[in-house]
Nucleic acid binder design. Sequence first.
DNA 1: GTCTATATTTCGATAGAC
DNA 2: GTCTATCGAAATATAGAC
Lengths: 196, 196
Amino acid sequence: MTIIPATKAEPGDTRERILDVALDLFIEKGYDKTSLREIAEGLGFTKAALYYHFPSKQDILMALHYRSHSLLADSMASLKELDSDPAAWADIFDRQIDDMLANRKLFLMHERNRAALESIHEKDHDQGHQDLEDHFRRILQNPKVPLRSRVRLACAQGALLGGLMISGLSFTEVPVDELAGLLRETVRDTLGAPGS
Amino acid sequence: MTIIPATKAEPGDTRERILDVALDLFIEKGYDKTSLREIAEGLGFTKAALYYHFPSKQDILMALHYRSHSLLADSMASLKELDSDPAAWADIFDRQIDDMLANRKLFLMHERNRAALESIHEKDHDQGHQDLEDHFRRILQNPKVPLRSRVRLACAQGALLGGLMISGLSFTEVPVDELAGLLRETVRDTLGAPGS
DNA sequence: GTCTATATTTCGATAGAC
DNA sequence: GTCTATCGAAATATAGAC
């Protein structure tokens, strides 16, 4: 398995088209139950042709993972404050909400293929691949952070994912701005009042 | 595929032992990447013996699904109020929190195998199989319920799942009562003040 | 109820022509 | 860049003995 950087070539590129088709199928049927044959059929050519663009099926999933990874780069930049200061969490979530809403499908895929993603994630130690979720996990296990704050952090992350997942399916007609506002206010309440 | 009722025979029953082993493996590796051979090895006998107890691999997953289904039976009973009265939602979640905390593994499995569960869920129309999540989905698509309430409902469900999932991994040493209290208060905030 | 085979299928991956 | 053809592995499921 080789690591494929998340470079976006010009649109219409076969490589990107493969990822788009795979993304839809991974959401609809899940990674494991999606065969390369199905992906190829969705593109109008055969299974073997995929291997010109991706050395393995896992690399297709990896490439999609890197898409979301690069999307959250901005949120990642401000992660250092995350450990020490629970009061700053809400702002970080605010930024995340925008990123995620703009790319719902990517995170829907992530949500529906946790097992598959984690199994390739383990083999990723060669790269300095610091994941947003890894960072969350570390905070949640940090005994210096009050338990109450940790529970609320875990719930806030779940609330955001839950809201996005449902919104990706049920609230497609609602303007993103309105949705973002509602999510922001809800996540803030989940995190709790700063002085509570 | 046949439907297997969630009857609990006496403990030590092979059937239940199979489900326990399968539950652990489905959480750890995911349904798709867990082979019948692995399940059988965890029990000390061979793959073929499983087929005496379950007609197919999917039926093992189904049986586990029915376990969680029966666990939420109580919460289901009070679901009729759910559509009309957002103020009553918090109470229903309260009941759910207890049920889910007492059976974290089951819902952890559910969370990590959404794709697999949904694919068998579609073939389940023969049974009058009213799912809790189905019911939620219906409310979330009901235009009579204010959008703000629907978003908060979706987020509350996500918050609960997120909290449980993390707690199932990180907060194992925390007493359930304390955890339940924190989750209750957090979910309430996620749903929002009754009069807000 | 559990075993030893074995049947059957499907899929990921490769080789090599065009 | 895409094709045909095929390999090899792994998994689900079955048949029938004990």
